[in-house]
Write a protein that binds this DNA or RNA. Sequence first.
DNA 1: GTCTATACCACGATAGAC
DNA 2: GTCTATCGTGGTATAGAC
Lengths: 196, 196
Amino acid sequence: MARKPGSRAEITEPRLRAAALKLFARHGYAAVSMRQIAREVGLQAGALYQYISDKQGLLFDLMRGHMEELLSAWGASRPPAGDALARLEHFARFHIRFHAARADAVFVSYMELRNLSPGNFAAIEALRRRYEAELEAILRAGQDEGTMRLPDTRLAAMALIAMLTGVNTWFREGGRLSRAEVEDIYVDMVRKAVGA
Amino acid sequence: MARKPGSRAEITEPRLRAAALKLFARHGYAAVSMRQIAREVGLQAGALYQYISDKQGLLFDLMRGHMEELLSAWGASRPPAGDALARLEHFARFHIRFHAARADAVFVSYMELRNLSPGNFAAIEALRRRYEAELEAILRAGQDEGTMRLPDTRLAAMALIAMLTGVNTWFREGGRLSRAEVEDIYVDMVRKAVGA
DNA sequence: GTCTATACCACGATAGAC
DNA sequence: GTCTATCGTGGTATAGAC
């Protein structure tokens, strides 16, 4: 398929998304202007609307893309054969690893929920719930097996996810601890917390 | 001291701060206009500048006020005589209770850090560090006593604070569990997580 | 202490040339 | 596919009357 000379859409679109993600993470959705994003990509503001419907749609696409990647990466991860405790450890390592690799998307997806229109918010929340349900299922299995003892499954899931996601607030590659060391330390705390 | 007729500064100022806090929490600092805040208080936008230097100063004052209240409330709380484990439980209950009572201020103080000017950011970070150090001291004491076993004190502190603060993302008074029940459940997980 | 009025600037989004 | 130009709106902050 012949491409028009000067046509760079396949390059420009991902660059636009990357620039928007970076700027939204750094300064916040509301604080970033379309002109700023355009400058980062090397375009005039008007040209952005070849790729997006409006600013809200851009935010929503970024967040939905992140959540769908999260769910599909989890689905593609190979859970270990073994007891629920092994699967919990697998979840914790997956969560830390996936989130550490996409700090900007994680940040935007947690911080900009209130800037979504109601319909868009509901869609993102539904995706988040599906992910939380994966952890809850593991915790329920652990209790059925008797390898875990939890006062409340839903609260435990929320507590563990908050703890694991919190890694992103301070972890920097090249710091005092490697990502693998951080993983080990958190796995230890997670295993203990579920009463193993 | 005689007050000018029509003078309502002592009433207006706290109302302004409360309105700004509520709106910042709901929609985000960058998304809220001075006109919106003024409408909420029942003034014209220009009148707000009797009480604040500028929008940035307003945000900073709210956040500093929150952090200082947090530190002074913790200082005023009576830690139990007993081992570090008892003090850790005291910290967990204090943290959940204090934060649940000020959801808006907590939200703003965690979400709007990136909208602070560099100098203001450093000041808030310093206050946050002081609070984290309080928990770290308890965890160190527990390890010295031998009642806690932790792979890394600093990480454990960050993990526990993230977990406890996470309560605010889903807890609503009048929901499935009372605040006291939530406290008990989290205390249980915190105690287990430190290897008690 | 609060108002009205306004300076000045930036916003998101669109139209039409190239 | 990107540009220039622009529309209409709303932003923060100040000045000066009351």
